[in-house]
């Protein structure tokens, strides 16, 4: 799907009149940003489920969603900077609400790992991380609203362009790219979950083979949730 989207990006979508070829980064940058933000909020929703049910699988899902969203957020900041350099002439523009609010959200979520690492007890770690995810998930839209009001707009508005400012060929490409990025996110989530399950099963089996009952055979430090 993503490959198809890239093919459309390069061969189908027309070049932008003002920005030329650089505008193509739009099809990577914007879907990535949207998926990352939705991922943060989904992580918060999973955390709510964890706090309600106390099942560690929800904590795991919340962890994975936030983990991948932070990785996507790095991509968003990098591609956004490249785009800004090309179209506005600066790597970073402060009077730009999108950039600033995205950076704030990114900084906030970067604290997720220090927080998890700083708690020894697994159950407590999961609970506190969930509380953090809920608060931060609610903070994401709030922060965007506040920063958006603070600055005047020069960012190409995604909402407005979807609503009709975009020529049909570009709109189609954008929708395909968005769908591709969402599918990539979901696939990666599933993949990471499967990998974590497999690692855990392997560790449990190995422990049983070795015949020791203590939990101290973990190699390396990890703050990821255990099942």
């Amino acid at each position: 799907m993503l490959t198809g989207a890239f093919a459309l990006v390069f061969f189908y979508a027309p070049l932008d009149v003002d920005q030329g070829f650089v505008q193509k980064i739009f099809y990577v940058h914007v879907p990535m940003a949207l998926v990352a933000l939705v991922g943060f909020i989904v992580g918060g929703a999973f955390a709510v489920m964890h706090l309600r049910t106390r099942e560690s699988k929800w904590d795991m899902r919340s962890y994975v969603a936030i983990h991948l969203s932070v990785i996507l957020a790095v991509g968003v900041l990098v591609t956004g900077s490249i785009w800004a350099r090309a179209s506005w002439g600066h790597w970073w523009v402060w009077d730009e609400p999108m950039l600033v609010s995205f950076l704030i959200v990114f900084l906030l979520y970067a604290t997720y790992w220090p927080l998890r690492f700083a708690l020894e007890d697994k159950e407590k770690q999961a609970r506190y991380a969930s509380v953090f995810a809920v608060v931060a998930g609610a903070f994401v839209p709030l922060n965007f609203a506040a920063v958006r009001m603070a600055e005047q707009y020069i960012h190409p508005q995604t909402g407005a362009t979807i609503a009709g400012g975009l020529p049909p060929k570009m709109a189609l490409t954008f929708v395909v790219a968005l769908a591709g990025m969402s599918l990539l996110f979901v696939t990666l989530c599933k993949y990471e979950l499967a990998s974590k399950h497999a690692t855990y099963r392997l560790r449990a089996l190995r422990r049983r083979l070795a015949g020791d009952d203590d939990e101290l055979t973990l190699t390396g430090r990890s703050a990821a949730p255990q099942l």
Binding site: I104, V105, L107, L108, A110, T111, P114, L115, A118, L119, E120, K124, Y128, V131, F132, V135, F139, L142, N143, A146, V147, A150
Partner: peptide
């Protein structure tokens, strides 16, 4: 959120600053 963690001061600053950006703004 931070009181039970080992690096309390660190976590407080890291969490509070981004969360309070809209207030300061």
């Amino acid at each position: 959120l931070a009181i039970q963690t080992r690096a309390r001061d660190l976590i407080v600053s890291l969490l509070a600053l981004p969360l309070l950006v809209p207030v300061v703004l």
